[in-house]
Structures are given as C-alpha cells and as structure tokens.
Amino acid sequence: MRTVDAAGLPIGDEHPPRIMGVLNVSKESPYSPSVFDDPEAAAAYVDEELIGEGADIVDVGLESANKRFEVLSAEEELERLDTAVAAMEASSGDAVFSIETRYHEVADAALSRGFDMVNDICGFADPEMPAVCAAHDAAVVKMASPPDLQRPGAVEDVDDIYDALALNGFTDKTIVDPAFGGWSDEKTLEDDRETFRRLREFRGYGHPILVSINRKNFLREVAGRDTEAALPVSLAATSMAVERGAHVVRTHDVAETRDAALIGKEFARDRVRRDAAGDEGEAVSVEELDVTTAGEAARHIDRVGGDPALAGQAVTRTVEFSGLDPEEIGALRAAVAESSAFIVGDAGTALVVGTPAGLRNISAAASGVSDGLDAALRALRGVTE
C-alpha cells in the first residue's frame, strides 16, 4: 500500500486516519450548516468548526452533488471559485485544502490559485484530469463513477464499482473513493451495505481509500434514524471503515468522527512491514496485506499480474462442526485427509482448518453420508466465498 503525500500530509497505512471536513459554497447544498457564500464567514467556520475540531483536510464544494439539481458547467463552477479561494485565503488554520470538482479546467485553476488537492467526484470521466493533477504534483481523490460527467457515482454493482475506479488510470498520488450514497435511482441501500462489507477489496489497487459515509441513508435505515439522529451510526461505521483499511474519512461532524476513526485505527490488526537490505544493499519491503476473503485476495493477485483463480488458496478458514456421530466424523476425517486442510477434535465436535478451495473439496468429498452432515456441508460452502 503506497503512501500519498498530500501537500506534506502523508496518507497511508503507517499514518493516522485523516479527517476531511466539508465546506460548501453552493447555496443548493442540503447540509445548511456547512454552506457559505461569504468568504469571511466561511473562513471562520473552517477555522473553528473544521480545523479547530481536528480536520486535516478541508474539502470545498462548488456545487451540490444531489442528483435532483442540474449539473453546473465548468464555467459556472469557475464563477464560484473566487469565493472558495477567498475563504481559503482568509482561513488562519493549518490544513490541506481540497477542491471538489469534475472538470480539469476547474482543478487547474484551483491548484494554480493555492488549493492543494482535488476531489474528483466523476472519477476521471474528464480524461484530462489525471494529467492536470500530475502536472501540479497534487493528490487527487478519485470517486468511482461511470465515464460520464453528468452521472457521478451512479454505479450499483460492487464489481462494477471496483472496475470504474480504474477509468483512465491512476496518478502516483491517487486516493480511491468507492462512492457511498444515493447517486442514482437504481442504487439501493443494500448496494451500499454490500460495498461497505467488501471495503477491503478496494485496497486491491494499492492506493489509499477515502470513505464518505457521514449520516448516509444505508446506515440510518439500519437503526431507523433520521439525519439529525444519525451521528451514532455514522461513528460506529467510521470505526469499522478505518479498521477495514480506510485512510480518509469525509465528514461534517469533525471532532466526533476523528475520535471514532482513532478507535478504529487503534484496534485494527497491525499490518507487518519490514525493510531490510538486499544482496546489493537495496531496500527489500515485506508487507502483510489486509486480506480476509478470497475476493480480497483476488484483487491483489490480479494487481500483480497473477491468476485471480488462485485466490481460493490465499486465505484460510476455521470452522467448527458439532453434533456429529462417529460415522459422520469418519467421513469428514477421510475427506480432510485427501486435502491440504487439517481436522482436530472428536466426540461429536471437530475443528476444520483450510483454504476456501480446500473446504469446497472437503464439502464435495464428504457428502452423501447423512442428511445432517449434508446440511452442514452446504453451510460450509457458504464460508468459502
């Protein structure tokens, strides 16, 4: 996993989770506490409510991303850029300033006038965007999106989201965003929840991950909360997202989100990274990847040019069978003996440890002994995905 330098702010596994606070200079934006058209008032909000509460990055939006509104043209966004620049210049706080846009012209103008990074909500649908960001040596958030400047984030299937992130490639300083939220009428809350469950897969590109989940519908529905009461579910999800490998959390609730992110980081499993001198004195890096499923393994294997079909051999599962009679345990032991897995225990209870591929083979080999064992083996196949 690479570390991205965003104007001196390192973003990656070996650094604290970064908090991106939100400022909008778009009157149509739905979250009114963050919307300003007066630069001095905007700067005060940035200094007190964002940077003062712990934001590392301030993301300035020029228009609402709500699909109910007409998309602004690049010219219309540029007309609003003066307010964004004035607010940035009036701020006395120390933070990285990001401009949210889909247009390379706006990104170029903003970076030329003092912004540090770009948040591209259309994921390089503008093919000139990566070149502009690279020319400015600027970090850029790339949100998964169709190749259409009018349809940011309107991707439903998780596999399609992953593929959309590859649109027009990556810069050396790209941060990926899997695009949570109701970006299209077709995208369901369950689609977002499935994306969240599979969040580790997006580490497969080797770039840091940003999540924007603050008070989102897919979390609110779980607890039956409206927007005003949704902060607790956002904070719970923030800790989980960081534990699953997210590096930047975009939020309107900076102080609370910062605390939740730090808890997620504290209790995340350490990823082992060691550097040593090779035969010719070159640095040799070893990193334990954060892989828990075959799907996650497939992403990393594909990234380095391997066969994703090998992913079933790249992780292990430990499962417990209980209530087995001697004949059923015997069948299970015989099936395990023909695989690379192992089995321990008896007297009705057994632990089986193996790869998903090995467990699938065991499931096939041990079937047919009894209805009870067959039912257990069908359940076993469910944990091999």
Results as ranks from 00 to 15, higher is better:
Ser212Gln: 04
Gly372His: 10
Thr83Phe: 03
Glu190Asp: 13
Ala139Ser: 04
Ala110Arg: 01
Val22Arg: 02
Lys187Trp: 05
Ser184Cys: 09
Val22Phe: 04
Gly224Leu: 04
Val286His: 07
Asp116Trp: 01
Pro127Lys: 08
Ala297Asn: 11
Val319Ala: 13
Gly368Ile: 06
Glu296Arg: 06
Asp290Tyr: 07
Thr3Ala: 10
Tyr103His: 14
Met129Lys: 03
Gly93His: 12
Asp374Tyr: 05
Leu62Lys: 08
Val222Asn: 05
Thr384Val: 13
Ile213Cys: 08
Arg273Ala: 15
Phe267Glu: 11
Ala74Asp: 13
Pro147Thr: 07
Ala366Cys: 11
Glu320Gln: 14
Cys122Glu: 04
Val336Trp: 07
Glu105Ile: 02
Phe97His: 09
Leu332Thr: 04
Met129Asp: 04
Leu324His: 00
Ala255Gln: 09
Asn66Ile: 00
Ala357Lys: 13
Glu76Ser: 08
Arg317Met: 12
Asp56Arg: 01
Leu359Ile: 11
Glu327Cys: 00
Glu70Lys: 14
Leu351Ala: 11
Glu287Thr: 15
His252Met: 09
Pro326Tyr: 02
Phe196Met: 08
Val336Ile: 11
Gly323Cys: 02
Met20Glu: 06
Ser322Gly: 12
Ala223Val: 15
Lys67His: 14
Arg258Ile: 03
Asp307Val: 02
Leu189His: 05
Ile161Trp: 00
Ala55Asp: 12
Leu262Ser: 14
Val344Pro: 03
Asp275Leu: 15
Gly368Tyr: 04
Tyr31Val: 14
Glu156Asn: 07
Ala311Tyr: 13
Leu324Met: 01
Lys173Ile: 03
Val176His: 02
Asn119Ala: 11
His300Met: 11
Asp259Phe: 03
Ala350Met: 09
Ala276Met: 14
Asp159Val: 01
Gly123Asn: 08
Tyr205Met: 11
Asp192Gly: 02
Pro17Thr: 07
Ala334Tyr: 07
Asp270Arg: 12
Pro146Phe: 12
Gly114Val: 09
Asn361Arg: 15
Ala87Asn: 12
Asp226Leu: 05
Pro30His: 12
Val211Glu: 05
Ile57Glu: 03
Arg274Gly: 08
Gly354Gln: 09
Ala134Gln: 13
Asp346Pro: 00
Asp192Met: 03
His104Thr: 05
Met129His: 02
Asp346Val: 00
Ala110Leu: 01
Pro232Ile: 05
Gly382Leu: 14
Asp59Trp: 02
Leu289Pro: 06
Ala74Gln: 11
Leu373Glu: 02
Pro10Met: 01
Leu167Tyr: 07
Val118Tyr: 04
Met129Glu: 08
Leu359Trp: 08
Cys122Asn: 10
Tyr103Met: 02
Met20Ile: 00
Ser29His: 13
Phe170Asn: 08
Ala379Ser: 15
Gly354Trp: 03
Tyr103Phe: 15
Ala164Trp: 05
Ser367Thr: 05
Thr195His: 01
Pro127Val: 06
Leu111Val: 10
Glu48Ile: 07
Pro152Gln: 10
Thr293Leu: 10
Asp371Gly: 14
Asp302Leu: 14
Ala7Glu: 00
His104Leu: 03
Ala277Phe: 11
Asp177Ser: 06
Glu320Arg: 15
Ala297Lys: 12
Asn119Thr: 05
